[in-house]
Write a protein that binds this DNA or RNA. Sequence first.
DNA 1: CCGTTATTTCAGACATTACTGAAATCTGGG
DNA 2: CCCAGATTTCAGTAATGTCTGAAATAACGG
Lengths: 194, 194
Amino acid sequence: MVLPPLIQTFVLHFGEMGGRWGVSRTVGQIYALLFVSDRGLNADEITEALGISRSNTSMGLKELEAWRLVRKRHLPGDRRDYFEAPEDVWQIIRTLADERRRREIDPTLSMLRDIMMETPQNPEEQHAQARMAQMHELIELLTGWADDVQRLDNDSLRQLLAMGAGVSRLLDMKNKITVFAGGKRRGVSEGEAS
Amino acid sequence: MVLPPLIQTFVLHFGEMGGRWGVSRTVGQIYALLFVSDRGLNADEITEALGISRSNTSMGLKELEAWRLVRKRHLPGDRRDYFEAPEDVWQIIRTLADERRRREIDPTLSMLRDIMMETPQNPEEQHAQARMAQMHELIELLTGWADDVQRLDNDSLRQLLAMGAGVSRLLDMKNKITVFAGGKRRGVSEGEAS
DNA sequence: CCGTTATTTCAGACATTACTGAAATCTGGG
DNA sequence: CCCAGATTTCAGTAATGTCTGAAATAACGG
């Protein structure tokens, strides 16, 4: 691998981390390389830069496309495919959240729903089912929330994050308003999303 | 594996999912089993229920303890260790967030900080460093926010989640108030956490 | 202390996943 | 329709990761 030291460190780190994630070392490295690159790269350039086989590059790129983390682009007068990582880091987070949800959360939710249709045959199964229901409820809340936040534009998202623990003060405020209005649960929260 | 069908499905699913996550099939299964169990189980019971080797159980439990997802408990008059998964699903989320952060995010932040101390030697490195700075900023924002939310009690957290997209309306409100107060950036947000 | 039972460690067997090179397929220009 | 460059597929191999049984260690009661 022949890369500027600064970039090499970054790429190698993502390679290692790729493992902890659901992707291979190579896939992590390819993504890291594209992320910091100031222009699209073709498969041969990537192969060369990372010192891996051409076929490995091809597979890695395919996987990254499946994750929607890189996209193909064509340069006029050049038949080769060029690949680049979308620039907007906020969008990257959205994409990641989306894909991980699709691959990890949704199948679990589906399984939980199926199980919850069953009738427990004894106290042991009954307890198990209750636990699964707890898990199901929590996951639904989390993903529902994530869905909503997902739709915020970058500025709103940044604002929300910058607020940090301030959120809890907003919640207090909301509660005061709610109580004030006669305890009829009509604060600024609850349902009716845009 | 001899388990009530309802539980078996759940355990097997977590085994599969374990793979996508950073843990082995066995570890996923052990956790799932403890999660739905209505009492602590000892290593032999787990071994028996999952049809795996005693040593595998021992290693799996050790890993789950490292994740702080299960804890050891002792029953009076019984020398064996009993294991159980903490009950509070909200707390589980906190633990997971905590550990994943420690294992995946923190090392990355550290690496990014190191790289950002370096002086880029050419335009290519300069662009790369700028991209890393973007990533660094985003991760800091996300983790800072997560830290704050982490400290909310279960009810506040539930409320926050239930609010969903309502958050954006709160933000609008905040902005109105801020502007109203003379555009001096003194809304309900910004710094000064509890 | 000693014997018994519980737990952990660890080297090797086994299984899974990642990577490569060669061959096959695709694509666009002539 | 053919050629050359580009990409993908795939079977075999290398590398990792997981699991086991046996042996070592620890913990407790007597």
